[in-house]
Design a protein around this nucleic acid. Structure first.
Lengths: 201, 201
DNA sequence: ATCGAATGTTGTCAGTGTCAACATTCGATC
DNA sequence: GATCGAATGTTGACACTGACAACATTCGAT
């Protein structure tokens, strides 16, 4: 960390980190490129070298969020063992927990404005996440989950519940009205209802 | 509609309507009080008489959205007849359909920034919606739905799925990746999976 | 060592939210 | 019907923002 050097050295990463923090504190509306520049001690136009527009910064945050959520979910899937249904169950829990534990990222993720500025990289990151879930659904259905339902309905049902639960656990307004929540146990309860692991026991 | 009168006459309502339209076209980020003023032919500071801050406008939109969604859902509940499970099923479908048919409102509804500025009126509107769902859940459980689950889990499960499905059907990015959707049939499919109406048939 | 590319700075511009001071109209009260 | 405070709309101003252009510094491949 040499001080007062002309080049910051790691501005891209630090802009992302700081932006996520600001979104957590003041929301997307309270996020400004100039504010970030001040926080990081660079000139007001420096961020433009990395994000031509504010929307590019938001898109990058969301892409990062999907990538991290995907990574966390994959880890959980591996740790869950061989049973495809237990694996799908664990993946849903991991996604929701990630949202609950990374509220700032998830706040950005769920901002509908971001969809508007989705670039190809963001779409790719989302596509990878969806594909991962789809494949897990296929395996789980082969293993006996919701065999009487169309695959597409099972996929959308699972995604809808996961997204909805993530919002419930990370949105402060819903938290106020519905909460306080009883921690991870409630996530388990909901996911177990969607994806019953004891289906053949 | 006398022209060039000093007082606009219906500025509050028209600001709300136009704001929802703009959100549909350009997102919450693209919404500006001055832009609304121009569109409606009033001075740039006129909106401030009705909404002291931009966040107040957003909160009003969301409150209106909850009120309308609640009204639509209540209608559907009445039309669904006596069976509490069929009624809950119809209510979920109505909420999701409302979101799919009122994308602009729902986009505003799901903007996490709004939670931050939630006023008491907004919280009250949301509270009424939640209370309505809660009571329907209680009745449905008495009638045999998910009797082995805690009420709280059933409530949150239902809300999570409804919110998630609403997002899936109204968010343009997810539409791109998951869609195109097959219309109302898919909503029915998902809701029937969450709230099976044939549980005792 | 050189030189184009990457990165950061300064200056500027139009647009925005918000406030204060002022103007017009509405509506309850006499 | 006239009066006057409240509600509503206007004008002007200020600080802040995103975005762009011109310029400065540093990096890194050759």
């Amino acid at each position: 960390m040499s001080e007062a050097s002309y080049h910051h050295g790691n501005l891209y990463e630090e802009l992302l980190d700081r932006a996520v923090a600001v979104i957590g504190e003041k929301g997307v509306e309270g996020l400004s490129l100039r504010g970030l520049a001040r926080d990081l001690g660079v000139s007001h136009a420096a961020p433009a070298r990395h994000f031509a527009a504010k929307s590019d910064l938001l898109a990058a945050i969301v892409r990062t969020a999907y990538e991290r959520m995907t990574a966390t979910t994959i880890e959980a899937a591996k740790a869950a063992g061989e049973d495809p249904i237990k694996r799908l169950n664990a993946m849903a829990k991991a996604s929701i927990s990630w949202a609950a534990n990374n509220r700032s990222y998830h706040t950005a993720l769920m901002n509908p404005d971001v969809s508007r500025f989705a670039d190809d990289e963001l779409k790719a990151a989302l596509g990878i996440y969806i594909k991962m879930i789809l494949e897990a659904c296929i395996e789980a259905q082969k293993a006996g989950l919701y065999t009487n339902r169309p695959l597409r309905a099972v996929l959308l049902y699972g995604i809808a519940t996961t997204i909805g639960a993530s919002i419930i656990f990370s949105d402060s307004l819903l938290n106020d009205i519905l909460g306080p929540f009883e921690g991870e146990g409630l996530i388990d309860e909901i996911v177990n209802q969607v994806i019953p692991v004891d289906i053949r026991e």
